[in-house]
């Protein structure tokens, strides 16, 4: 196994009074691709939010180590700066700041130095092209008036530019047409090859995985990981659904 970058031990998470995750264990090595599947309401998104540090998700038990540090002690911004990235299921519209300025701002914060404008623009244009995005999107306000597909692509664009150590892709493929899924998959592939970062891909469909190498597949049911396997588990679930894992 590759060097461990994320280790989740017995993680329990509450939303309000209700416990959603009942003790999750998961370890991710550098550069590995993990797929997280599970029926609706199993707690997949909760896991992503809890790891990123959404204040609405309360950690009641467990330990998470990320890049050798105690993740649960870190603020949201520290988690981001340490290399954790969450691709949101519904990215937020932020008027008044362009996609380009936003990414540059985030990059400056992560690296602690001013990004050279020329080099930045070049790289941004290159990644926009990878994602089949009109270069004009760079100067549009962040996610404002973007279609569902463009919003998801903008998330992958940020992921490519920020080069995180670990990305959690929360249903980045849901609601996209077949071409957009392919494009997003291409972006994910590009991230895997050029950045070499690890991923936890939360998905219901296998389309996004077609061209990707998958190291591990986990099945999350009712707040617990009930089965871990390799890529073949994806195909098995694709065929038979989750029925045999439900109590």
């Amino acid at each position: 196994m590759a060097e461990e970058i994320l280790k989740i031990e017995d993680l329990a998470v509450n939303v309000g009074e209700i416990e959603i995750l009942h003790g999750v264990n998961l370890t991710v090595g550098r550069g590995e691709t993990h797929v997280l599947m599970g029926p609706n309401g199993a707690g997949k998104t909760t896991l992503g939010y809890a790891l990123m540090g959404n204040p609405k998700y309360e950690i009641t038990r467990g330990k998470v180590t990320f890049m050798g540090q105690d993740l649960l002690e870190m603020s949201v911004e520290e988690r981001a700066k340490t290399g954790l990235f969450l691709s949101f299921q519904t990215p937020i519209e932020v008027p008044g700041i362009s996609l380009s300025n936003f990414v540059r701002n985030a990059l400056d914060r992560k690296t602690g130095e001013k990004t050279r404008l020329w080099k930045f623009r070049k790289e941004l244009e290159k990644e926009l092209a990878v994602l089949d995005m009109d270069p004009a999107y760079a100067d549009r306000d962040l996610n404002v008036g973007f279609s569902g597909g463009e919003k998801k692509k903008a998330e992958i664009l940020q992921m490519l530019m920020l080069k995180p150590e670990l990305c959690i892709l929360d249903e980045t493929d849901s609601g996209l047409d077949i071409d957009a899924v392919r494009t997003v998959s291409k972006g994910v592939q590009e991230y895997h090859e050029t950045v070499g970062g690890a991923m936890i891909i939360i998905t219901h469909s296998t389309k996004i995985l077609e061209a990707l190498h998958v190291d591990y597949t986990h099945v999350l049911v009712d707040g617990k990981i009930v089965k871990t396997g390799d890529r073949s588990l994806v195909d098995e679930i694709n065929e038979n659904g989750f029925e045999k894992y439900l109590k």
Partner: peptide
């Protein structure tokens, strides 16, 4: 200002 918007921006490395 929605908490979701704050969280989104913080998840990209901004302070609150």
């Amino acid at each position: 200002i929605s908490d979701d918007a704050i969280f989104y921006l913080m998840s990209r490395g901004m302070s609150e």
